[in-house]
Design a binder for these strands. Structure first.
Lengths: 278, 278
DNA sequence: ATGTTACCTTCAATAAAATTGAACTTATGA
DNA sequence: TCATAAGTTCAATTTTATTGAAGGTAACAT
């Protein structure tokens, strides 16, 4: 840099700030106290700029602000551990968490409004989505012990059925599971959209319900008994991300933030191939 | 700003960072997670820039990094309160403190290497310097009580004299004060450049010394007695700054950082004119 | 699906800003 | 006081940013 260019820059900066930064009565020109303060601050500013460049360099680990969706169940059960793990293992990444229904979240991942989501995989996901099963949850019937005396057949014929959110992913899975059981024509079905309320009603002996094991366990009271659903149908909690999205090459990294993965699920080949201890 | 200009800037930034900040497959283009991280950081960067501009705006109070010199005595006695006051009353100012001899510090203020200095004013300061007396310190003789029994005359004739730094400002003042006292031709004079060592020797009864009151008080032991020097000579501790320097208009502000000022000194008119309580 | 529309990007031209070298000015030291 | 080295200024040049027109591409509606 030429001396004259430097001189011009000094002048320009002084004019821009409207302050004398240099004392020209001395040679070489000296910084004024304000000038020294500006230098101090400018040094910090440049450090800050380096930091910006640093964080902008993508690495093998997660960097950036990601938007992740969680269905309610996952938010309650998986989110705390996820946030713990990410704060430890991916300090350069921040997360915006959003909760909603499987279908909505899936749609937002497809449209790029979310980078990834933990959703229920009822019957396959669109091709544009990459996914991996996080948890497999069998369905169980739950009812007051008094109602269970008559066995499964008794429940079906005599008790009202509390159907949790029939329109959603898990609700449809429940409906599917119920289809293999005959119920009388006039059998009563009550629709609820709140898990805790459903279980409260069941605890009061008002009827029975069919839900994934963990949800029943969470709100179970001593009065409630369970009966494993004879079907092999189970809810699959999957992590889904767009194949061409920000997780295209780092899907496994994000996956690892969900801790131990149910290896019976559809884990990506290179991940499943790893030797396991024990 | 034109849309095309914005587009160009987006492109340029992406090339500069070597990272895809935007996902152009959507309309309007979306930020990638890295892009969001960069935005977050850039917002902080801009805040930082505002801060730089803010601190560069000079105000009535002290802003900037000032370099202040203190002679050793002042550093020991005045500096703590100075730093306390400035951190409270001038949070936008920072200080580089330097210690040294009066003559050296005075010279550095004249050449602009220091913005101000607390020095001894032996016999007037150069016209280019503005100054104000901070403390007036009478000189006292100090000696072991045993030696004092013979009075001042006894000291002069019988005891060795410990002369503190004859070549410096305070040393010359001491020499000046001693000139009004006759001593025998063969009277012993010991030169030391350390205040504490001088007082240790005096405490041991090895001789007497002549020093400003506060210095004697600081290192005095019960064995040491003092005798007020009959002359009216006293050390003046002054704050000095270049008239055309950074304190040209804020000298009084800096002065106030030294707490209560000995009003018998040469205080600037507008400051001395203030009504005093009590 | 398919076309329309609105929005975004690209490119060449233009405007703005930074840099340079030569001429001029000023602090420093003999 | 002068000579010199160092800093500043100015006009010309280079670099960078912005603009408007033309060419794509995603989004929306039919």
């Amino acid at each position: 840099m030429t001396l004259s260019a430097l001189s011009m820059q000094m002048k320009t900066l002084e004019q821009a700030l409207g302050v004398a930064l240099f004392d020209r009565s001395a040679r070489p020109p000296r910084l004024t106290p304000v000038g020294r303060a500006v230098v101090d601050e400018a040094v910090l500013l440049l450090r800050h700029e380096e930091k910006l460049i640093e964080i902008s360099q993508p690495r093998s680990d997660l960097t950036g602000r990601f938007r992740i969706g969680f269905i309610t169940t996952a938010a309650v059960r998986l989110l705390p551990r996820f946030l713990l793990k990410t704060s430890r293992d991916a300090p350069r990444a921040t997360f915006e968490i959003e909760t909603g229904l499987s279908a909505d979240l899936q749609n937002k991942v497809l449209t790029g409004q979310l980078d990834a989501a933990v959703i229920t995989d009822a019957d396959g996901l669109p091709d544009q989505l990459e996914s991996c099963v996080l948890r497999r949850e069998p369905l169980v019937f739950a009812a007051h012990r008094r109602l269970l005396e008559g066995g499964l057949a008794g429940l079906m014929s005599d008790a009202p059925f509390f159907h949790f959110m029939p329109d959603t992913g898990i609700g449809k899975l429940i409906a599917h599971a119920m289809m293999s059981h005959r119920r009388p024509e006039n059998a009563e079905t009550i629709v609820l959209d709140n898990l805790e309320a459903t279980m409260e009603c069941v605890a009061e002996g008002l009827g029975f319900t069919l839900l994934p094991v963990p949800d029943v366990s969470r709100y179970r009271t001593p009065d409630i008994g369970t009966l494993r659903a004879p079907t092999s149908l189970q809810r699959k909690l999957v992590l889904a991300a767009a194949r061409d999205g920000p997780f295209a090459r780092r899907f496994v990294t994000l996956l690892s933030m969900f801790g131990d993965i149910d290896v019976r699920g559809g884990i990506p080949a290179e991940h499943a191939a790893r030797p396991t201890r024990g």
